[in-house]
Amino acid sequence: MPEVLVCAQGEIADGAVRIVNAGRLEIGVIRRADKYFAYRNLCPHQGGPACEGLRMPGVRSVIENGIFLGQTFDEDDMHIVCPWHGYEFHLADGSNVCDPNIKLQRFDVVQRDGAVYVVV
């Protein structure tokens, strides 16, 4: 499978995105906690640039003994938020937070010889 050079390892800041072109595909590569995630920069909702939106932690309800105590952010569940209509996707697997059947197209990322590549 062909690979597209994204950057040198560590060149993308933690939490940031780099958009690369692979022929007709636009791919967003996001670095989080020294891992790289790559998704097609195309929201399945209405074609918005999903990877160019906010990246933010998911909201988690705090419930103890059946009592709702409020909400907090879950830093272990980062979301990609499409800037057009706010559709949210889990960074870890590209699935929509409300409907896991809706997903961003995912690409494998390879780190080799100090560089980061996307497999297309």
Score class of each variant (00 low, 15 high):
residue 31 R to T: 00
residue 31 R to N: 03
residue 33 A to K: 11
residue 33 A to F: 10
residue 34 D to L: 13
residue 34 D to M: 13
residue 34 D to W: 14
residue 34 D to R: 07
residue 35 K to A: 00
residue 35 K to T: 00
residue 35 K to I: 00
residue 35 K to H: 03
residue 36 Y to F: 15
residue 36 Y to K: 07
residue 38 A to R: 13
residue 39 Y to N: 01
residue 39 Y to M: 09
residue 39 Y to K: 02
residue 40 R to V: 08
residue 40 R to G: 10
residue 40 R to E: 11
residue 40 R to S: 13
residue 40 R to L: 12
residue 40 R to H: 12
residue 41 N to M: 10
residue 41 N to L: 03
residue 42 L to A: 09
residue 42 L to S: 07
residue 42 L to W: 12
residue 42 L to Q: 09
residue 43 C to P: 00
residue 43 C to Y: 00
residue 44 P to K: 07
residue 44 P to H: 07
residue 45 H to S: 08
residue 45 H to R: 05
residue 45 H to G: 03
residue 45 H to A: 06
residue 49 P to K: 15
residue 50 A to P: 11
residue 51 C to G: 06
residue 52 E to Q: 14
residue 52 E to L: 14
residue 53 G to Q: 01
residue 53 G to A: 03
residue 55 R to F: 05
residue 56 M to K: 11
residue 57 P to N: 02
residue 57 P to E: 02
residue 57 P to K: 07
residue 58 G to P: 15
residue 58 G to I: 02
residue 58 G to L: 11
residue 59 V to S: 11
residue 59 V to Q: 10
residue 59 V to M: 07
residue 60 R to A: 00
residue 60 R to L: 00
residue 61 S to M: 08
residue 61 S to Y: 07
residue 62 V to I: 14
residue 62 V to R: 14
residue 62 V to A: 14
residue 62 V to D: 14
residue 63 I to N: 07
residue 63 I to S: 07
residue 64 E to Y: 05
residue 64 E to G: 04
residue 64 E to A: 03
residue 64 E to M: 02
residue 64 E to Q: 02
residue 65 N to C: 01
residue 66 G to N: 10
residue 66 G to H: 09
residue 66 G to S: 12
residue 67 I to S: 15
residue 67 I to F: 12
residue 67 I to H: 15
residue 68 F to Q: 06
residue 68 F to E: 09
residue 69 L to D: 01
residue 70 G to N: 05
residue 72 T to V: 03
residue 73 F to L: 12
residue 73 F to V: 11
residue 73 F to P: 09
residue 74 D to F: 06
residue 74 D to S: 04
residue 74 D to E: 07
residue 75 E to Y: 06
residue 75 E to W: 07
residue 75 E to P: 08
residue 75 E to Q: 08
residue 75 E to G: 04
residue 75 E to D: 02
residue 77 D to M: 07
residue 77 D to S: 10
residue 77 D to E: 03
residue 78 M to A: 08
residue 78 M to P: 00
residue 79 H to R: 05
residue 80 I to C: 03
residue 80 I to D: 02
residue 82 C to E: 05
residue 82 C to I: 05
residue 83 P to Q: 13
residue 83 P to D: 08
residue 83 P to V: 14
residue 83 P to A: 08
residue 83 P to K: 15
residue 84 W to H: 12
residue 84 W to E: 12
residue 85 H to G: 10
residue 85 H to Q: 14
residue 86 G to R: 15
residue 86 G to H: 11
residue 87 Y to H: 08
residue 88 E to M: 12
residue 88 E to K: 11
residue 88 E to W: 09
residue 89 F to E: 00
residue 89 F to R: 01
residue 89 F to V: 02
residue 90 H to M: 10
residue 91 L to Y: 09
residue 92 A to F: 13
residue 92 A to W: 15
residue 93 D to N: 15
residue 93 D to I: 14
residue 93 D to E: 14
residue 94 G to I: 06
residue 94 G to N: 11
residue 94 G to D: 05
residue 95 S to Y: 01
residue 95 S to G: 04
residue 95 S to W: 10
residue 95 S to M: 09
residue 95 S to N: 08
residue 96 N to F: 10
residue 96 N to C: 15
residue 96 N to T: 13
residue 96 N to H: 15
residue 97 V to H: 02
residue 98 C to H: 14
residue 100 P to T: 09
residue 100 P to S: 12
residue 102 I to C: 13
residue 103 K to G: 11
residue 103 K to C: 12
residue 104 L to R: 01
residue 104 L to D: 00
residue 105 Q to P: 11
residue 105 Q to A: 13
residue 105 Q to H: 06
residue 105 Q to G: 12
